[in-house]
Design a binder for these strands. Structure first.
Lengths: 139, 139
DNA sequence: CCAACTTGTAACTACGTTAGTTACAGGTTG
DNA sequence: CAACCTGTAACTAACGTAGTTACAAGTTGG
């Protein structure tokens, strides 16, 4: 299993908004760069808007960053598009047998490790800003 | 999206084998502790066997660890059960527009970060052994 | 040697998530 | 007011997971 392309597409969209400042970045135009359908873009910009990362208004073409690219981290984007859902990155089976010592204690033994592993991944994303990504794209 | 319970169930199975050394750990018995169907267990023990983590033989009840619990890491198990598939943990959209500077360069800009994030997560799993998990389960 | 048991695996179902699509309501603007 | 946009519902197809039944093939004790 892997994390949905929503996350990568969201980064793509925000990088576009940063680089094409001032132009009219309609969902149709963005879709042309991403290689998908405008509705897919609008679904994601809607999530980014609700998370406060961009400003979008119904009826008004385009969108723009709500704050500087240097102050938007990949973790912000990851959270905005619900990249791993509300659950943990790691799923644990629901009904271990409480009458078995292992069944009773396995969740308690592995959940802390799972949590640390997920945090380590998210910490990497927290340290990278949209500006750092955009700076790698030639104008 | 999250990592399949196969991973957590595999850890559960191996912890059982470590703790119930000597007993006959049939797939049916293990299924009782995990709270699932014996076939689900056999599917996973088959993967663990192919990865060389346990010894199983058709027709012979039970399974046992192929090496000491202190020498089996959670990363070994994670890889054995194909927890994130053969692809990266993070998916990237397939058809960005090569005629757009962003479309052309976005993958190159984000893949290294995705790779680092995945590695950070896997490094945590590498540092935890099955023995450490099993030691948290009272006998 | 055979009856009882086991593993390995195919095949099927049900479910949830994703991505793509069409359609349309409602906001905006020249 | 006409032309354009966003937001979102609804539907489809594809894919992975988990659970299940069924059965072939291996093993073992009496």
């Amino acid at each position: 299993m892997n994390i949905s392309t929503r996350f990568a597409v969201a980064i793509h969209i925000l990088a576009l908004l940063e680089i094409n400042k001032g132009d009219k970045n309609t969902s149709e135009w963005i879709a042309g760069s991403v290689g998908t359908n405008p509705v897919v873009i609008r679904r994601i910009t809607s999530m980014l808007g609700k998370a406060g990362l961009i400003e979008v208004r119904p009826g008004v073409a385009g969108a723009k960053l709500a704050r500087a690219a240097g102050e938007i981290t990949l973790l912000d984007i990851y959270l905005a598009v619900d990249a791993v859902g509300q659950d943990s990155l790691f799923a644990v089976h629901d009904h271990p047998n409480p009458d078995c010592p292992v069944g009773q204690n396995i969740a308690g033994a592995i959940l802390p490790v799972f949590s640390l592993a997920q945090q380590a991944m998210e910490d990497v994303l927290r340290k990278v800003t949209l500006e750092q990504i955009a700076s790698q794209i030639p104008v």
